[in-house]
Design a protein around this nucleic acid. Structure first.
Lengths: 326, 326
DNA sequence: CTGAAAGCGCTTACAG
DNA sequence: CTGAAAGCGCTTACAG
């Protein structure tokens, strides 16, 4: 390349990076040759020299979950034009796979990492410091000091409980995810705290593996227990709840009210449309991307959570409890 | 690292790669120091030397579409343990973004590329040869000679038509995606060919932008035209069709039968459950990964399509046409 | 069995 | 304004 233009490699480098002084004539020649040859600078050489790759790893628990797909897209959008590329990795919510994926990522010397820790993740500050800049999203790692982007889980779930109570429900349940997930604990606490605010109200809680099938079983049991309102842990669990309502022969919302967590396309398609606590995924991804850009540009960024509000979207799946009530 | 173990860099290299001869004693020392330091070889240095990065780019049209998320996961699974990492990129079905993403990817000198071309993609053989090994999936690029993994679109859509005809439908429609997509053309041909096999059958076809909103409008028009059976182009379009059926006040399957294309979780949740032509996404991803591994290992791989069968999954959304029929 | 030398493509001082 | 030199971390011959 440099030879074809009749100049040295570092002159090409100067033209490409806009550093140092280059005569207008030389610059034009170099740019012409670049164009003619379809030359593209080798990012590997550049990274070796810089000892950092302009790449941000994104490790999520389950790429099949639309929430994470939307999150990836939002981060990508925020980082567009910054020169960073994204390397998306999936760990199937397996702590061992997570560790293996991070090892692989680390070998590329990335500039940063956005991580949604797996359930039962054993990641420590020590593991993460090799990544330079780390932001965690949605789930929080115990004892790890990195900036985190999270939803106001407790308040958001609380607003779902208040909605059910306002409609007159007193026997309500929440179908949760795995005990080990920080989101499960936060949403459970929010649920129980909100229920406790209403003396006549009784709250039932079930933990599941977070799959549709698991949630369906748990929801079936809860419905047998004469509950009239059910809150879902996430979109998949909400699928399981709706499925259980259908197979139990109960009607929604006449017999059972349902509120989901995290919006999904099918929720507006279902009859009744499913009311839901929606998480601002785009905002969360953009914020995570911004935090990473700040850190990468040397700004000091405090560790700890950035809380983003979940919002109750009212549709048709909540009504006054009528089950056995007439 | 090498210094800490009291050996030269290339001895460490030999231990790490299992090449050449290393005494058992030296090997043990080196491994101990690697372990103690948490040393991880720098993939960048290795790639620079090899002039190829052990990385496979995966460029999809829309990461928010669960089909592509499942595809990515299947490719990842097939490539697990091969030493290749995946770099997932999204182009939002925009040919310009696609080109930009590929430029970025190219700067990393990846070993291969799996691409689902964007609608209206202008990619040529010339653009793609910089990637060494390329496999296209789902959509096919006109005039580009690479191995491709595709569904038997025509036959699969044909089987949906046959199903409707077998139930007695004669006025049927298909809501398609964008004209420029190869999948649209193939599915349209399959639809029209199957309809043509039945003289009493009339087939109506509508092109859309492939979004739920666009499909909803088109499906609404088609339902006004007294069609009794509708076939969807993909999962999102099928959402639009189901939504249009709901808002039109018609009942499925009593008034209108619906068959989707590409399975999605909500389809079993909807009442009636939606019958669908399912694509074997896992198989497609595994095959794409396999083709790439074959090419990377120097096997000669013929360009051209590998056809994988779509399968009709019968659920509850098809019945005999009753609309105005009694 | 092990090390010194060279080079992958780039950028950062340093000379001129 | 431009180039020769050095070095990022690795691996591939080549000596010993």
């Amino acid at each position: 390349m440099a030879r074809a233009a009749g100049v040295s490699a570092q002159t090409v480098s100067r033209v490409l990076n806009g550093t140092g002084q280059v005569s207008e004539k030389t610059r034009a020649t170099v740019l012409a040759v670049i164009e003619a040859q379809g030359y593209r600078p080798n990012a590997v050489g550049r990274s070796l020299r810089a000892s950092r790759t302009p790449m941000v790893g994104v490790l999520v628990a389950d790429i099949g979950n639309p929430f994470y797909a939307r999150l990836h897209r939002a981060i990508e959008r925020r980082l567009a034009g910054s020169g960073f590329s994204l390397m998306l990795m999936n760990c199937d919510d397996d702590a061992l796979v997570e560790r293996r994926q991070l090892e692989l990522l680390r070998s590329y010397r990335p500039t940063g990492l956005v991580v949604v820790p797996s359930v039962g993740s054993s990641l420590s500050d020590g593991d993460l410091q090799a990544f330079g800049h780390v932001v965690s999203v949605s789930r929080v790692l115990e004892g790890v000091h990195v900036p985190a982007v999270v939803t106001n889980e407790r308040e958001a779930v609380g607003s779902a409980v208040e909605e059910l109570v306002a409609y007159g429900h007193s026997e309500i349940a929440m179908i949760l995810g795995p005990r080990e997930a920080s989101t499960t604990r936060a949403r459970e606490e929010g649920f129980l705290a909100a229920v406790a605010r209403h003396p006549r109200c009784r709250g039932l809680v079930r933990h599941t593996d977070g799959t549709r099938a698991g949630a369906e079983v748990a929801a079936g049991e809860v419905l047998d227990a004469e509950v009239t309102g059910v809150v879902g842990f996430n979109a998949l669990v909400t699928e399981g709840i709706v499925s259980a309502v259908l197979t139990s022969g109960l009607r929604c919302p006449e017999d059972v009210s349902v509120i989901g967590f995290t919006d999904a396309g099918w929720m507006t398609l279902h009859r009744p449309a499913i009311s839901v606590i929606d998480q601002p995924v785009e905002e969360m991804g953009a914020l995570a991307g911004q935090l990473l850009l700040d850190m990468a540009s040397g700004k000091s960024v405090e560790p700890g959570p950035r809380v983003v509000p979940g919002v109750l979207v009212r549709r048709g799946s909540v009504a006054a409890p009528g089950r056995g009530g007439k």
